[in-house]
Simulated assay, not measured.
Amino acid sequence: MHGPVSAAWLLVALCGATGTYCLLRLRSGVEEQRRAAGGEALMGFGMAVMAVPATVFTPPRWAWPLYAAVFGAAALWALWTARGGLRHLHHLVGSAAMVYMAVAMAGAPPAAHHAHGGGGVPALTGALLLYFTGYVLLAGALLVPAAGAAGPAGPVSWGDRPELARACRLSMGIGMVAMLLTM
């Protein structure tokens, strides 16, 4: 991805921390937390790797098709699990966006990874930006506690805290918006 180096490092840190927390959620006692955590960890770490500034590391040309294949497989898995509920469709859109960005990076000349283009926003990038911006706004609103809402009755482990899981999803949505803006 191209853009300011300091913003790229912040995105790497945000997505890496999110991926790490999602790995912790894999140990949750709540099955629903474990089920979503693996895909979200993959997304967090994948976004972190993609956001590393090109001045530090430029992946070889063969890495982008591999990246697209990994997230293509994640998109197929999300499509399969979406049969059980619409909540999984967000994972499908996120994985498809990662495939889209990897294909765009594979097709771009190496110099394009370092400079902004001036040709306008492609329709798919614009649609993904609209989707993830809406998702971020909705996820942010859902983090605000309802008036009179009570917290958990007893101690809850780090992997079982739904508000932290929502915060991670929010941060990955923000990261996706940032990455799409740099395309």
Results as ranks from 00 to 15, higher is better:
residue 23 L to N: 12
residue 25 R to F: 07
residue 152 P to C: 06
residue 44 G to Q: 08
residue 36 A to C: 14
residue 51 A to W: 01
residue 109 P to L: 12
residue 28 S to K: 04
residue 83 R to T: 03
residue 178 A to R: 00
residue 179 M to Y: 03
residue 127 A to E: 04
residue 94 G to R: 01
residue 88 H to M: 12
residue 121 V to E: 10
residue 155 P to Y: 12
residue 33 Q to E: 15
residue 108 A to Q: 03
residue 147 A to F: 13
residue 1 M to E: 07
residue 3 G to K: 04
residue 76 L to K: 07
residue 110 P to I: 02
residue 16 G to W: 06
residue 126 G to F: 03
residue 114 H to N: 08
residue 66 L to H: 06
residue 166 R to G: 08
residue 72 G to A: 06
residue 155 P to W: 12
residue 1 M to R: 08
residue 15 C to T: 09
residue 124 L to V: 10
residue 153 A to Y: 03
residue 99 V to I: 07
residue 176 M to R: 01
residue 148 G to A: 08
residue 59 P to D: 03
residue 64 W to A: 01
residue 118 G to D: 11
residue 57 F to W: 15
residue 16 G to S: 07
residue 35 R to Q: 15
residue 90 H to M: 09
residue 55 T to Q: 15
residue 182 T to L: 09
residue 24 L to Q: 12
residue 40 E to G: 15
residue 178 A to P: 01
residue 124 L to T: 07
residue 28 S to A: 10
residue 71 F to T: 00
residue 11 L to I: 00
residue 80 W to M: 11
residue 95 S to D: 03
residue 155 P to N: 11
residue 65 P to V: 02
residue 35 R to V: 09
residue 153 A to M: 10
residue 7 A to I: 12
residue 62 W to M: 13
residue 23 L to Y: 08
residue 126 G to Q: 06
residue 41 A to T: 04
residue 135 Y to A: 08
residue 171 S to T: 03
residue 180 L to Q: 01
residue 138 L to F: 14
residue 116 H to T: 07
residue 155 P to H: 15
residue 137 L to Q: 10
residue 56 V to K: 15
residue 89 L to A: 07
residue 181 L to F: 02
residue 102 A to K: 00
residue 17 A to Q: 06
residue 61 R to G: 13
residue 143 L to A: 00
residue 146 A to K: 12
residue 121 V to N: 07
residue 23 L to C: 15
residue 9 W to N: 09
residue 178 A to H: 00
residue 125 T to F: 06
residue 83 R to M: 04
residue 170 L to V: 01
residue 151 G to H: 10
residue 101 M to G: 05
residue 69 A to V: 04
residue 72 G to E: 00
residue 138 L to N: 11
residue 103 V to P: 07
residue 128 L to A: 06
residue 58 T to V: 13
residue 138 L to D: 10
residue 129 L to T: 01
residue 160 D to R: 01
residue 28 S to D: 10
residue 178 A to L: 04
residue 62 W to V: 09
residue 32 E to M: 14
residue 118 G to I: 00
residue 175 G to E: 00
residue 120 G to A: 05
residue 132 F to K: 04
residue 76 L to V: 02
residue 13 A to R: 06
residue 112 A to H: 04
residue 49 V to N: 13
residue 127 A to I: 03
residue 94 G to E: 02
residue 163 E to S: 14
residue 55 T to K: 13
residue 145 P to N: 06
residue 146 A to T: 03
residue 106 A to G: 06
residue 141 A to M: 14
residue 37 A to N: 07
residue 151 G to A: 11
residue 21 Y to Q: 13
residue 75 A to R: 00
residue 33 Q to V: 07
residue 81 T to N: 13
residue 71 F to D: 04
residue 43 M to F: 13
residue 72 G to H: 03
residue 94 G to H: 00
residue 136 V to E: 02
residue 182 T to I: 03
residue 22 C to G: 04
residue 112 A to Q: 11
residue 40 E to N: 14
residue 52 V to A: 11
residue 110 P to R: 05
residue 30 V to Y: 14
residue 123 A to W: 15
residue 170 L to M: 01
residue 65 P to M: 04
residue 130 L to M: 13
residue 106 A to T: 00
residue 175 G to K: 01
residue 89 L to V: 07
residue 33 Q to Y: 08
